[in-house]
């Protein structure tokens, strides 16, 4: 039986917020409302990260997902007016729902056969560190330096790519479109 304490209550609250608002994103027909719920879901995930003692990641999640990607989504919605306001299901939604349920079921099976006794988190408590930021920084600029640099290059290219895609005029787009059609 699960013990009643602050930690468990917080976990229940935050996971409920996350999951219910994610379900709301799937169910609600107004795109703006589902966007609002999506932001709440992001914040819920960030709170779960706090419970997992990942303070830096929680803040990064808050900054990047709730603060930036949501703004990007808002801009996308505002740049594609009127037709984009609805959030209705397509004709494949039954198939999609089945896929989701099947996936969840498989994951249940995996979790249930998992030997959880090894992974108690107690050994991490023994490592006894209070600050994750400098450790993450050491890892990023030490062991994973190449991946870090590649990620920065990826971000730069994404930035330039996004700008060039949106700025390209109709003729450029036609070239791209014909190339895509040709591949088909």
């Amino acid at each position: 039986m699960i013990e009643v304490n602050i930690y468990n209550a917080a976990f229940l609250l935050f996971s409920m917020i996350t999951l219910l608002s994610a379900i709301g994103v799937a169910v609600i027909n107004s795109l703006m409302r589902s966007l609002f719920l999506l932001i709440i879901s992001f914040i819920g995930v960030a709170s779960l990260f706090v419970l997992l003692s990942a303070d830096f990641i929680a803040i990064a999640q808050l900054l990047i997902y709730a603060g930036s990607i949501s703004i990007l989504l808002l801009f996308a919605v505002m740049l594609t007016p009127e037709v984009s306001i609805n959030n209705q299901n397509s004709k494949y939604f039954l198939f999609a729902a089945l896929t989701g349920i099947l996936f969840t079921y498989i994951m249940f099976l995996f979790i249930s056969i998992f030997d959880i006794n090894q992974l108690t988190g107690l050994s991490l408590d023994k490592l006894n560190f209070s600050n994750t930021i400098d450790k993450i920084g050491t890892l990023l600029l030490g062991k994973y330096i190449i991946a870090f640099e590649l990620a920065s290059i990826l971000l730069l290219f994404a930035l330039i790519g996004a700008i060039s895609i949106v700025r390209s005029n109709e003729s450029d787009f036609n070239i791209v479109a014909t190339k895509i059609k040709g591949k088909k």
Binding site: M32, I39, D55, I71, L74
Partner: peptide, 26 residues
Amino acid sequence: DINVGILYVFAVSSLTVPIIFFAGWS
């Protein structure tokens, strides 16, 4: 008294952006 104090303030205050947007849009 958290180790990510500055980032925390920065992240939390960036949440006002969508709220203000929703206020204006709705």
